[in-house]
Simulated scan of single mutants.
Amino acid sequence: MSEATEYLIKNINKTFEIYNAISKMETEVLSKFDKNIRESFPSWVKGEWISPEEENLHEDYCINIIRKEWSYQNEKKDTKSYIWTYDRK
C-alpha cells in the first residue's frame, strides 16, 4: 500500500474534513462565477439571448447561452435549444 493511501486511512476523519472543505469551496466559487456570468452576459452578448438555469457551473461545469428564437421548453418546463453553436478555435 502506498504511503499516501496509508496516511489517508489512518487519518480518515481528517481526510473527510479536507474533502468536504474542498467540495464546499468548489460549490461556492462556481456558484458565484455562475451568478456573475449570468448577470453580466447581456452586456457583452448582443441580441435576445437567454441563459437557462437548469445547467450551471457548479453542477454541469458549463453555462448555456441560447438565442431566444432558437429555444423551446420541454414538458418539464426546462429551456432547451434547437441549435447548438460552438466556437472551435
Rank of each mutant, 00 (worst) to 15 (best):
T85L: 11
L30A: 12
I18N: 12
D34L: 03
P42H: 02
E54K: 15
S23G: 07
I83N: 11
N74S: 02
K76Q: 13
N56V: 08
E59D: 15
E59N: 15
D34Y: 00
V29E: 09
K24V: 06
N74T: 03
F41C: 10
S40A: 14
S71P: 07
F33G: 04
K24T: 12
M25K: 13
T15F: 03
Y61L: 14
I12G: 06
N56H: 07
T85M: 11
Y19T: 09
K14F: 03
T85A: 15
S43A: 15
E59F: 06
E69L: 03
K68I: 12
E28V: 15
D87V: 08
I22Q: 04
K77N: 14
Y7M: 07
E55I: 10
M25G: 08
K77V: 07
K89G: 14
S31K: 03
D78N: 04
Y61N: 15
E26S: 10
I65K: 11
P42Y: 01
S51N: 06
K68R: 14
T79G: 06
E69Y: 02
K14C: 04
E39T: 15
N64H: 14
D78L: 01
H58K: 12
N11Q: 09
L30C: 13
E53G: 12
E54R: 14
Y72I: 13
S23M: 04
W49K: 14
L57G: 09
N56E: 12
A4Y: 05
N36H: 07
E59S: 15
Y82S: 08
P52I: 05
D87M: 09
S2R: 00
K32C: 04
K10I: 01
E54M: 13
I18L: 12
D78R: 05
L30F: 11
I83F: 13
D34N: 13
K89S: 13
I83W: 04
K32R: 05
N11G: 03
Y72E: 10
R38L: 02
I63V: 13
H58V: 05
D34V: 07
A4R: 06
I37P: 01
W44Y: 04
V29H: 00
T79Q: 01
L30D: 11
I9G: 09
M1E: 10
K10E: 09
Y7S: 08
E75Y: 01
I65F: 08
